[in-house]
Amino acid sequence: MKKWDLEISSKTFWWKWNLKEVWRYRDLLLLLVMRDYKASFRQTILGPIWFFIQPIFTTIVYTFVFNRVAKLGTDGQPPALFYLSGVILWNYFSTSLTSTSNAFIQNASIFGKVYFPRLIIPVSIVLSNLMKFSVQLAFFICMLIYYTNFTTYTANMSWHIVLVPLLVLNMALLGLGAGMIISSFTTKYRDLAYLVTFGVQLLMYATPVVYPLSMVKGKLLSIILLNPMTGIVEGFRYGFLGTGSFEWGMLAYSFSFAAVMLVIAISLFNRVEKSFMDTV
């Protein structure tokens, strides 16, 4: 029997990830990210400024509700910096997760007409959001500089700031993994899609976004520490603001969590992508 360049078979092997093919389509990945960027600000006057407006207003509202009304502490940080850091991190994670979890359904019309490695789509979603996150991060840094130079605030940055790219990568992988697992299940049964929309909202309260981890005590603390996003948010604040907590153990936990989830996600995704057009 001759060896075929490509074999289309009825059998699926969950361990065949075909990453080589994903690499071959890397130009498509890049173009999809560019498309998302270009298309999102067509026919807007403010353009990329919209990247800032949403976190600014969310920060204002959080400051009012959680700081002024509910009197939750901010570890002694200016509320604007405290909430802004939480908001941009959480936004990145939650938008990555929710848009990835719709990957199959949203793109069914393209997937139904042409083949390319389906993995490209979730990865492009996470990368597009990463671009948005980077702009917001830059904005956060500007705010930090403003506070140090024009107010009495003194920045307390620690060397852990060099770990921020690692934290962001970790967060991206978490969003990608969770989103892909959900998208694999929602092709046939849409129930999970409903769960995700409010589940992500609720999950935010199980992450130290609007409160510092130092406020949480007892049994609740162990639950919150189980959340892989906790270490990321806390580590990020520790690096930039100097308060919060940083432990290698927490980082290691978040990373292993993301890694295991990603392996499951890609295997599931690979299985589903072959025939999801029949059930979507």
């Binding site: 075929w4 074999e7 289309i8 078979s9 009825s10 083949y115 057009m277 029949d278």
Partner: peptide
């Protein structure tokens, strides 16, 4: 065009394959 998978059987291909279903 690999949009969906056969229930049984297999297809072998030599070379690059492109499909225009639309």
């Amino acid at each position: 065009s690999r949009v969906t998978q056969p229930t049984t059987g297999s297809i072998g291909v030599h070379g690059r394959i492109a499909s225009l279903l639309e």
